[in-house]
Simulated assay, not measured.
Amino acid sequence: MRIGLSTPVVFQLPGAYSEWERDAGIEDIAEIAQTADELGFDHLTCAEHVAIPAAAASQRGGVYWDPGVTLGYLAACTRRIRLATSVVVLGYHHPLTLAKRYGTLDVISGGRLVLGVGVGSLAEEFALLGAPFTDRGARADDALRALRAALSEREPAYTGDYYTFQGMVVEPHATQKKVPLWVGGRTFRSLRRACDLGDGWMPFGLSTKELGDLLARVEPPEGFEVVLSSGPLDPETDPEGARSRLRELREVGATAVTVSVVARSCAHYCDQLATLRTLAAQEEGSRE
């Protein structure tokens, strides 16, 4: 089971982020990304929201760094770790916009893109952007098919219910022959969409039991990724709790885990990552 990083600072959920993140900047994010890269973490993430209604910010958070710009910067600061959007809302973009923007990221990172995508649920944001809301699920399905046809092609062609294109050059485009597409969500429909049209499922806001119940209803294709979130871990103060949480997620079916850690500062965050990496290695060793 691989371990990735829910990048701090770039998304600040009320009640879940550490106080030091409030005033942190890109230098702190880069230091943490470089540490995770050197420690052998699998991926780091960045979410997407354009604008959050003020009335909803106390629940959803108001801080969302742009994933294209942020991951582009971190691509230059790292060498191996994969760069995952978690998630881009499909309905906000034409598939070729995503193919160009994130295909470029794949090029400049040397083929490290993981394109995490979602249907979206914030009606006010859809309305702000002039994006259709009521049929967003069907549009997302068509967009996923279009992305699969377009991401790694110089002259992509696709004909679907909502998107059709041909005779257009997209350059640069992704260097990977098949960019991993991870589908976010918290419903069985999102899991079904991931199995049918993607390469992995990255759910949120579900209990371990709920995850297990949903995963028991499908037979994922070979190589399918189940990317689960750990919630905040404190490997320094509660090492057994961190081990137990990783073990729990592996047992429910995770092929990869996206972790976050509690910390007092950027430096402490990096120390916590190192401690967690040691614990994870010990846990893996105990299973051999």
Rank of each mutant, 00 (worst) to 15 (best):
R2F: 04
I3T: 08
L5K: 04
G15A: 05
S18H: 13
A24H: 01
I29M: 13
A30D: 08
E31I: 06
A33F: 04
A33C: 12
Q34H: 06
Q34E: 08
T35K: 12
A36P: 06
E38D: 14
A47H: 12
A47N: 08
A47K: 05
A51H: 06
P53M: 01
A55S: 15
A55V: 06
A56M: 12
A56S: 13
S58M: 10
R60K: 11
G61I: 05
W65V: 07
D66M: 04
D66Y: 06
V69T: 15
L71Y: 05
Y73T: 01
Y73N: 01
Y73K: 01
T78E: 02
T78L: 03
R79P: 01
R79D: 13
Y92D: 07
P95E: 10
T97D: 14
L98N: 08
A99S: 15
K100N: 01
R101T: 15
G103S: 01
T104M: 06
L105D: 08
I108R: 03
I108G: 09
I108P: 09
I108T: 10
S109P: 11
V114A: 00
G116Q: 05
V117M: 03
V119G: 04
S121A: 13
A123V: 15
A127R: 12
L128N: 02
L129R: 06
L129K: 11
F133A: 07
R136V: 05
G137R: 13
G137A: 12
A140M: 07
R145P: 03
A146C: 15
E155W: 04
A157K: 14
A157S: 15
T159N: 13
D161A: 10
Y162P: 14
V170Y: 01
V170R: 06
A174S: 15
T175F: 00
L181A: 01
L181F: 07
W182A: 09
W182T: 13
G185R: 09
G185K: 03
F188K: 07
S190T: 12
L191Y: 04
R192G: 01
R192C: 03
D196N: 04
F204N: 01
G205R: 09
S207A: 12
E210R: 13
L211S: 02
L215A: 11
R217Q: 15
V218H: 07
E222S: 14
E225H: 09
P232K: 11
P235W: 06
T237E: 10
P239V: 14
R243I: 02
L246R: 00
L249K: 14
T255H: 05
V259Y: 09
V261W: 07
V261D: 08
V262P: 05
R264L: 08
C266E: 10
A267H: 11
H268E: 07
Y269K: 09
Q272I: 00
L273N: 07
A274S: 15
A274Q: 12
A274Y: 00
T275E: 15
R277S: 08
L279Y: 10
L279K: 12
A281C: 02
E283N: 04
E283H: 04
E284R: 14
R287H: 05
